[in-house]
Design a protein around this nucleic acid. Structure first.
Length: 406
RNA sequence: GGAGGGGUGGGUGAGUGGUUAAAACCACCAGACUGUAAAUCUGGCGCUCUGACGGGCUUCGCAGGUUCGAAUCCUGCCCCCUCCA
């Protein structure tokens, strides 16, 4: 890699926006001013191949640094994946087959490179060095730290206090991650704030092994669409990068209003001043938060799809959610196949209800109606066998539709 | 090697022989409200039959057993955790 590196005049775009903490900031800015390409480390476990907006906060940082001429080293944690990151405490560890790891890694990278520049990224697999590790290496590595150091880490301390299990392999996790830093001679490692411990162990180990300790660059944790907890797949409050445009747009519109500005800050290039202005006008109630949220949803959808997709997602949202009109596209069923069914059966056959019991409930709660092509809305009662005609639309609740066709 | 605690519906978690399809809370679904969202209120939230009333079936780690009746008692097995050594 050749070293055409720009040194930005104003560092705050890098060191402030979308940043939670840098250890140490002074060293980091000094590194930036050296004018050499820095080696930016980012690791991931191929146990969880899905990237969501929560990850994008960090990926955007990497991209920003790449655009200045720095180099990303992406570590595929094909060994640590087997242990499971103790950060955030779940103790589940599933063993993956080699094939699964490959598949997950591939899927991860496909998404990763939607934000990060592939040209300035070097991909390294942990197995390249851990595959040859011997017990002697393990002992040599573990001998540098004490159990006490590790037990002081918040996750472990809490679990220990609560009599929750801590697997020995979990203690190994930070060490392995740290060793990665040594192998690739990382200058800066990126991670969420929940990664602080792991990042610091890397920094420390490098120092012990005669390298310049890496800088630890921590990004804020993005709050999920539920407005309460960290965005994560398991909490089902996430927006995936591979989300279809309508869903991506819709999920972003379901954000609580108070998260709008943080999403702008972490996930878009909208200038700080503009964001401050939005904040201001929402606080003084001179603007409707919905409009800013739409702008956000449009930008993000466009970023991961394209402007056209974002626009039609918005149209769909306005049509279906705001005006409660019918969507343009919906699943279609042939009259010949469903014409004779009772309303209950119709709902289950079309997948609009997951069981007959569910269908009954929906009907009983007044969620179901038939919309004729004339626009006439016909309400139904359980057990009815409505006379359907081509062009009729069956609706269950806000979002479930089916159209009858010839 | 020894002692103890535990496995309940998507999650947390109550329940120690019938009144328990199983409290409560969260999540979720629907309705009302609504300029998105939030908040609030109402209803729902195993499967199945029924327009409804109501019925049937399956469920509390797994397999057996006791009993008119078991998530609750007994036996065996599997799994998890803590402590002592």
């Amino acid at each position: 890699m050749t070293g055409q590196v720009q040194i930005p005049e104003n560092l705050s775009a890098i060191t402030r926006r979308g940043v939670s903490r840098i250890i140490s900031e002074a060293e980091f800015t000094a590194m930036l001013r050296q004018g050499r390409p820095l080696r930016l480390k980012m690791g991931f476990d191929p146990s969880r191949p899905d990237i969501h907006l929560g990850h994008v906060v960090g990926l955007r940082k990497l991209r920003q640094m790449q655009d200045l001429g720095h180099q990303v080293i992406l570590i595929v944690g094909d060994w640590t994946a087997q242990i499971g990151d103790p950060s955030g405490r779940s103790a589940t560890r599933t063993m993956l087959t080699h094939a699964e790891v490959l598949e997950n890694a591939e899927s991860y990278m496909r998404q990763f490179f939607k934000v990060v520049d592939r040209e300035r990224t070097q991909v390294e697999w942990q197995s390249q060095w851990f595959g040859e590790f011997t017990l002697a290496n393990v002992i040599e590595l573990t001998s540098r730290f004490t159990v006490n150091q590790f037990l002081h880490r918040e996750d472990f301390a809490n679990r220990y206090a609560d009599n929750q299990p801590i697997a020995i392999t979990e203690l190994l996790y930070p060490l392995m991650q740290a060793y990665d830093s040594v192998v690739i001679e990382s200058d800066v490692e990126f991670g969420g704030t929940d990664q602080m411990f792991n990042l610091l162990v890397g920094r420390e180990l490098q120092g012990m092994m005669g390298q310049t300790p890496q800088q630890c660059f921590m990004m804020p944790i993005l709050v999920g669409t539920d407005g309460a907890r960290k965005m994560s797949k398991s909490l089902d409050n996430y927006v995936a990068l591979e989300e279809p445009p309508q869903d991506m747009y819709g999920k972003l519109m379901s954000l609580p209003d108070r998260l709008i500005t943080s999403y702008y800050e972490y996930l878009t290039d909208v200038p700080d001043a503009d964001i401050a202005e939005m904040q201001q006008s929402m606080a003084s109630e001179t603007a409707n938060p919905m409009d800013f949220k739409k702008g956000l949803a449009r930008r993000i959808t466009a970023a991961f799809h394209d402007a056209g997709a974002a626009e039609s997602a918005e149209t769909h949202f306005e049509q279906v959610v705001q005006r409660r009109d019918l969507p343009d596209a919906m699943p279609e069923y042939r009259l010949a196949d469903i014409g004779d069914l009772s309303i209950n059966r119709l709902l289950t056959q079309t997948g609009m209800a997951s069981s007959n019991a569910e269908a009954r409930r929906l009907i009983g709660q007044g969620a179901v109606e038939i919309i004729r092509s004339s626009g006439e809305r016909v309400s139904v009662a359980a057990g009815d066998a409505p006379a359907l005609a081509a062009g009729d639309v069956l609706r269950a609740g806000r979002r479930r539709f089916a159209r009858v066709v010839e």
